[in-house]
Design a protein around this nucleic acid. Structure first.
Lengths: 157, 157
DNA sequence: TATTGTTATACTCTATAACTATA
DNA sequence: TATAGTTATAGAGTATAACAATA
């Protein structure tokens, strides 16, 4: 007998709903990536490189991984022709990682398939409800990003 | 110049907002799990076992993994004293996996820390907005689950 | 000395295929 | 034969620590 059972029938409560929804969304992403023999992290790598050519260290910060993990990640993507390493012209120690034409093409394809699947997922909601959902989720994200010192609306991640 | 730029300023659009939110939520979950030296999959394992004692095969279906992957997963949880294997009394080939008292305690702790962090995350929204978000997310989940032949409101996953 | 990137190593997670024991 | 579970093997992803080259 939950004393705080204020949710109407069919409602999971914010915490559970967002948790479960995150698994569903990640599942969609993982499935689409897998259809192209990619992992989620490889997909994120391509996403980051779509509008940037960072060094390994910088890449590690973007992805929240140790730089030693980036080495293997980039190795595998490079051996598939999706990204490329080039020595930095400014710093003899550094290298610059960039996406190849093939990598960009694949990234675009993944993005479009993801968008389509997500559109289907939110299909049961009316357009106005989708906008409301978008707005609420965005507000959470903006606050969360601000809490980490990032301006979501400016950062192009 | 996007022709479909109908979103007000500060809005990412449903697809991007849900995608990014899923990474944030998974990040919270992963961080809390890591604070207790657990992975997300180990945490899910404990979650599943909170109200069930399935066989290995059944567990594989719940977690969406191959049964051979379950062996190692359960091995590691068992060696930490979080779960236990018992031979099935009905089927000589089968075993039954159940959570231990220590496992249950840890699972409860994880759940409570997760709830707290998530509550903070949605804190910027007014209570009524949180309810609206919960309702919209739940509707998506119910449809998605129904599409897989599962009744979310009855299934105790 | 500090920083950039790689290597060596170890562990978790995952799948496929082959195997054992029971049904 | 079919099913439950494990083992063998391989590979991705991750971290820590040690290292080389450059700043």
């Amino acid at each position: 007998m939950k004393h705080d059972d204020v949710e109407g029938r069919g409602d999971l409560g914010v915490v559970d709903a967002l948790a479960q929804l995150s698994f569903v969304v990640q599942g969609v992403l993982g499935q689409i990536a897998a259809e192209h023999e990619l992992s989620i992290i490889q997909t994120r790598l391509l996403g980051v490189l779509r509008d940037r050519s960072p060094g390994m260290n910088e890449l590690a910060r973007y992805l929240g991984l140790d730089k030693s993990s980036i080495t293997g990640l980039v190795d595998r993507a490079e051996s598939r022709g999706l990204v490329r390493r080039k020595p930095s012209s400014k710093d003899g120690r550094a290298i610059v990682v960039s996406i190849t034409a093939a990598g960009r093409k694949l990234a675009q394809r993944l993005a479009s398939e993801f968008k389509q699947r997500m559109t289907t997922l939110v299909g049961p909601l009316q357009p106005a409800e989708q906008r409301a959902l978008s707005e609420l989720a965005s507000r959470i994200l903006i606050h969360e990003a601000a809490g980490r010192g990032v301006d979501l609306m400016t950062a192009s991640t």
